[in-house]
């Protein structure tokens, strides 16, 4: 996410999160500067009522991770994030014993001639346990459900998916040396995927599915003016029109909302209050991240796209 979006500390803390109805959810989200439509708000509402994990899928940069952050703010609770990668295993996702510390303890006790049983009790206590995100989410949810964000699940591998399946259905973890830890309240689970590969159906079936699309022009303008309030409305509209035009093009990586916000701030920093071809060219790096794509947009004619962006909505319709 962009710096502009991640300023969690700056964000107003909503005192009470009213989720008695989808409309109330929609309103609370909006107060936290996240623009949600009815579909999203209703799905979110259902996820909390049914205590089902929420599976967010969509192109990169449409605000999937951000939604989880907003949710944590709304519930006034902790956000525990597990970033997935290939080869992620239970040691880094669940818990791990602090082996080095255990070894040292054993060595020290040896000098003091401690008895073995006592040593064993000592080294398999919480002091030597390293909590990883999944365990932490369960432990912390004891008083108040936390938001557990399992980010970019498509980057992990099948082994981890299978493992996750087990955790998400029981919400309990057994540590052989210590016993079973079970959350009294299930954490609110949000999974995100950029769809770089298909996630196994068994996992997705346990979740509420939501496809997060690129926002419509109107919605994107609203997002820009909410997130970057210092941007003049005219510039915001031009930027968003340029972006929706750009998203129809055949890019390898289409720009997301995160790119729109980055770009708006870049243009503001350059003191632009209107879009022109030169400044677009200078700041292309904000919206396109592949050299091929940059070449393609230049071939397509930035001037033409800027001209389209300048059209007022009446003319366009």
């Amino acid at each position: 996410m962009t710096p502009s979006q991640s300023g969690g500390a700056k964000r107003r803390k909503s005192l009470e999160f009213d989720f008695s109805s989808p409309e109330a959810v929609q309103e609370s989200i909006r107060q936290n500067d996240y623009i949600a439509d009815k579909t999203l708000a209703t799905t979110l509402f259902l996820a909390m009522k049914l205590e089902k994990p929420l599976f967010l899928e969509g192109e990169a940069g449409v605000g999937k991770t951000e939604l989880a952050k907003v949710l944590a703010t709304l519930l006034d609770t902790e956000l525990i994030r597990l970033q997935c990668y290939e080869g992620l295993d239970s040691n880094s996702a669940l818990y791990e014993w602090n082996y080095a510390k255990q070894l040292l303890h054993i060595k020290m006790e040896e000098g003091a001639k401690g008895n073995t049983k006592q040593i064993e009790r000592d080294i398999f206590s919480e002091e030597y346990l390293i909590e990883r995100p999944l365990l932490r989410a369960l432990v912390r949810s004891k008083e108040k459900p936390v938001v557990l964000l399992i980010d970019e699940i498509d980057r992990s591998d099948e082994e981890f998916e299978a493992f996750l399946l087990e955790i998400l259905s029981d919400f309990q973890i057994t540590i052989p040396e210590m016993g079973t830890i079970k959350a009294t309240r299930n954490p609110v689970v949000v999974l995100t995927s950029n769809r770089t590969r298909e996630i196994h159906d068994a996992l997705k079936r346990r979740c509420l599915y939501l496809w997060v699309d690129y926002p419509s022009f109107e919605k994107e303008v609203e997002i820009v003016t909410t997130k970057v309030p210092e941007a003049p409305l005219k510039l915001a509209e031009q930027i968003c029109r340029f972006m929706s035009e750009a998203r129809t093009m055949d890019f390898y990586k289409r720009p997301g909302v995160a790119e729109t916000l980055d770009w708006t701030q870049a243009l503001l920093a350059l003191h632009k209050d209107e879009l022109d071809a030169d400044s677009v060219r200078e700041t292309l790096g904000c919206i396109l991240k592949y050299q091929d794509d940059i070449k393609r947009i230049e071939e397509d004619g930035i001037e033409r796209m800027v001209a389209t962006a300048h059209l007022s909505p009446e003319v366009e319709v």
Partner: peptide, 10 residues
């Protein structure tokens, strides 16, 4: 929304 989010997975 209720049927869609529950019924589909891709």
């Amino acid at each position: 929304v209720a049927t869609r989010s529950n019924m589909i997975s891709s």
